[in-house]
């Protein structure tokens, strides 16, 4: 249980960092990385709770929610028309 508590705290902190990083555009990539790592921790705790039969604490739930919001908001700033960029990139690779 101790390791899950530590992961829950880490997930919550990473979620907060990802949300804060939205304010500065150059830091959104750091926000995305934090949100991804935090989200993986939060999902691990949820699944472990389901498989081992314990209820994840509220910090883990808060971490999950904050990381999802952080990932979505960071992605919205960073994302462009990926399909167009993708086509140009693939064409460059083949030419």
């Amino acid at each position: 249980m101790e390791q899950y508590n530590n992961k829950a705290i880490a997930s919550l902190v990473l979620g907060i960092v990802s949300l804060v990083s939205i304010v500065w555009s150059y830091f959104t990539i750091i926000g995305i990385i934090c949100a991804i790592v935090g989200l993986i921790f939060a999902i691990q705790i949820r699944k472990a709770g389901e498989l081992e039969g314990f209820r994840p604490n509220s910090m883990a739930t808060a971490g999950l929610v904050l990381n999802i919001i952080g990932l979505a908001l960071c992605a919205i700033v960073l994302i462009a028309c990926v399909a167009c960029v993708g086509l140009l990139g693939t064409a460059a690779m083949f030419s």
Binding site: S25, Y26, F27, T28, I29, L78, I79, A80, V82, A83, V85, G86, L87, G89, T90
Partner: peptide, 14 residues
Amino acid sequence: LIRLATGGAVFYGG
């Protein structure tokens, strides 16, 4: 570093 941080994504990689 700036280009990596601000943009650039390939759809098929995604």
